[in-house]
Computed example of a mutant assay.
Amino acid sequence: MQLSPDLAAIPPLINEVPLGALPLSGGLTNRSWRILTPSLGWVVWRANAFHSQIFDICRRNEAKVINAVSPSIPTYQVLKENEKGLLVSWIEGHPYQQPDPEPAIALLARIHSLAPDTSIRQFDFQTKVDHYWSHIHDSDLKARYNSFYQAFRAPPNLRTSMSAICHFDFGFHNLLKSQGDIAVIDWEYAAIASPTLDLAMTLDMLGLDFKDGLTLYQKYHAVERPEDWYADMMDWKPHIDLMAMLWYVLAAQVWESGDFYTMAEQIYQRNC
């Protein structure tokens, strides 16, 4: 608890004293802990920490998403939650490293096929990037990136109108091979939004061509007018890059890492 004071919230939450704690490696947004408890075994503590507000993360919304998807999608279970954070079950598994992306795309299509829970928050692209922008302190960076930000802060005019539960960080880093299945973790950015945005972000992270990725996706999810889906995904691309660039600037600021600034600058150079 000296290393992470938020761990003090766990004993009253589970009504028992944990036996130990280990910081989890990885996770660019989360600094989670693996906790050993007498009655629940290993669990994961996802705190509502200072950086949660900066990255616009709501643990209560995250819990709602997990509860909505867990009956149908392999993932962890919400065990306990309060205003201090979220306690979820531990998934035993290994990082997903299969070179074939089709199983991952099929799993994303399954998520998009779930009935949207109205209690999950609606994603608003402009509100999100404006929030990121408002938390950047470096005036020189703001001056450098302002034209890119102003050009793409408003979302594109979409040809499609559907909405779905979207993960918004569906890369291999958030997939685990567990008991012969693929489990999805880290739902903190999930919201109700256009699946064209989530699919475009996923294909971007996986390094897949949008047309090839959409063809794979169509094998597992009905797509009316795929030409409209493809056009919307292409229209989303510079907006996705803007959101990612601002996220990396914030990450560099929060975690004091120059590597994140490098990532942000690479995205800027690619677009501008």
Rank of each mutant, 00 (worst) to 15 (best):
S4Y: 15
S4H: 14
A8G: 10
P11T: 06
P11C: 01
I14E: 04
N15R: 15
L19P: 01
G20Y: 05
A21D: 08
A21W: 09
G26Q: 07
R31H: 12
S32D: 07
S32K: 03
W33M: 06
W33K: 02
T37M: 05
T37N: 02
S39F: 14
W42Q: 09
W42I: 06
V43G: 05
W45F: 12
W45V: 02
S52T: 12
Q53D: 15
C58G: 11
R59E: 05
K64W: 07
K64S: 07
I66L: 07
A68Y: 04
A68F: 05
P71G: 05
S72C: 11
Y76R: 10
V78H: 06
L79K: 02
K80A: 12
N82H: 10
E92V: 15
H94Q: 14
Y96E: 09
Q97W: 12
Q97F: 14
D100I: 03
P103I: 07
P103W: 05
P103F: 07
I111A: 03
I111V: 09
L114I: 07
L114N: 00
A115S: 12
A115Q: 11
T118K: 14
S119M: 10
R121P: 07
R121D: 13
K128F: 08
Y132E: 01
H137A: 12
L141H: 14
K142T: 08
K142W: 09
A143C: 12
N146I: 15
Q150C: 10
A151P: 05
F152A: 05
L158V: 02
R159K: 14
T160P: 02
S161P: 12
S163F: 14
S163L: 15
C166H: 01
H173L: 10
S178A: 12
Q179P: 08
D181F: 13
A183R: 02
A183M: 10
D186K: 00
D186E: 07
E188I: 00
Y189D: 02
A190D: 01
A190R: 01
A191S: 10
I192L: 06
I192E: 02
S194M: 06
M201T: 13
T202N: 00
L206W: 07
L206H: 03
D209I: 09
K211F: 14
D212E: 15
G213Q: 04
L216E: 10
Q218G: 12
Q218M: 14
Q218V: 11
K219M: 11
K219R: 15
K219S: 12
Y220D: 09
H221I: 10
H221L: 12
E224G: 15
Y230L: 15
D232T: 02
M233P: 00
M234W: 15
W236R: 00
P238C: 00
I240R: 01
I240D: 01
W247H: 01
W247Q: 01
Q253L: 05
Q253S: 09
V254C: 01
D259H: 13
A264D: 02
E265Q: 08
E265C: 06
Y268I: 09
R270D: 13
N271Q: 11
C272P: 14
